[in-house]
Design a binder for these strands. Structure first.
Ligand SMILES: [Zn+2]
Ligand SMILES: [Zn+2]
Ligand SMILES: [Zn+2]
Ligand SMILES: [Zn+2]
Lengths: 167, 167
DNA sequence: TAAAAATTTGCAACATTATAACAGTTGCGA
DNA sequence: TCGCAACTGTTATAATGTTGCAAATTTTTA
């Protein structure tokens, strides 16, 4: 089994895209949801890298395709994709990123590099457990967790150590 | 020692406000920072309840005071207050809330009730530890944590159980 | 105290992100 | 082929946040 593709490292990103699209098609089939051309194209654009994309970035790229689009088109597609657990919204960035392990609606934990902009989605049962424990101690009924961790990814840590100011 | 004032429960909120303002003055004195009238007034407005306030809500209330204000005035005051750890921004709400235990710049953990809108700031060492552990496992250098937990507070849980649709 | 410097505020314009309302289109079953 | 539901296009607008510069205020320096 190959190591998980880490956004921070060079990897065959086409595989990320192909897998994401294949999973999306499969999930929509199972959910009897329609992965229309616009929706699929938006998902593909979101997956063009591991850097979250703003709604208006998506919009601009749709327009570059020649697609005549307005904000609602994009926001509706993104809503759909979120609903089916295919993308996540990063609240601290007002941006969207593809979901690493789609299938069910879930709230991810994100490691966001402030230098390169890449995002890694974690599945962190320990964190979730600690959160639920703390919430339970306050008799709070958890419905949704927003956990976004900003900092420096491994690559950008060494970069800043090796090359003080790389342009 | 009295029980901590929980936002969800009736409490003498004037004490919350008085304490927050007193701490703010003390902290600014120590930091040699200037808690000007605008800044103090914005902090007071933020503390008018435990429900986070949008920047434009603050702006409206400043205007109601007769204060001639524009967005930058509010955003600058909020920036100042954040810088000195006196208020927090809730990214998932685009809103601001007073800090429960100010003194140093820190990232809080928030329990946000989607029904009554009140927010409780937690100090949760267990969660922080779990997050740092998970980040370290990915060789990620944490700088800032955004943790916002939405759901139902104790009061609103019982309300919805007792009174199915209370208007 | 008076001039100079730094900080804070006022103000106008603008940028970005997101939604509302309604009309047209498409796919699908009756 | 008709009717319905879901999807998309279109226009306008709302909500949130920023830039840049000038005036006012406070602090520092001489
Ligand atoms: Zn990839
Ligand atoms: Zn995910
Ligand atoms: Zn209170
Ligand atoms: Zn705090």
């Amino acid at each position: 089994m190959p190591a998980r593709a880490l956004p921070y490292r060079p990897h065959n990103h086409d595989l990320c895209v192909d897998q994401a699209l294949a999973q999306a098609r499969e999930i929509c089939r199972r959910n009897e949801a329609r992965l229309t051309p616009v929706r699929e194209r938006v998902l593909e654009l979101i997956w063009q890298s591991h850097k979250p994309l703003g709604a208006y970035d998506v919009l601009a790229q749709l327009s570059a395709d020649g697609h005549k689009a307005a904000p609602p088109t994009v926001y509706r597609a993104l809503d759909f994709l979120q609903q089916h657990g295919l993308v996540h919204r990063i609240a601290s960035l007002n941006a969207f990123t593809g979901c690493d392990h789609p299938g069910q609606h879930h709230c991810g934990t994100f490691l966001i590099c402030r230098s390169c902009g890449n995002v890694l989605e974690l599945a962190a049962p320990n964190i979730t457990a600690a959160i639920n424990q703390a919430a339970t101690a306050e008799t709070f009924q958890v419905e949704q967790i927003t956990l976004e961790i900003a900092g420096l990814c491994p690559r950008c840590q060494s970069d800043s150590a090796d090359q003080p100011t790389p342009s």
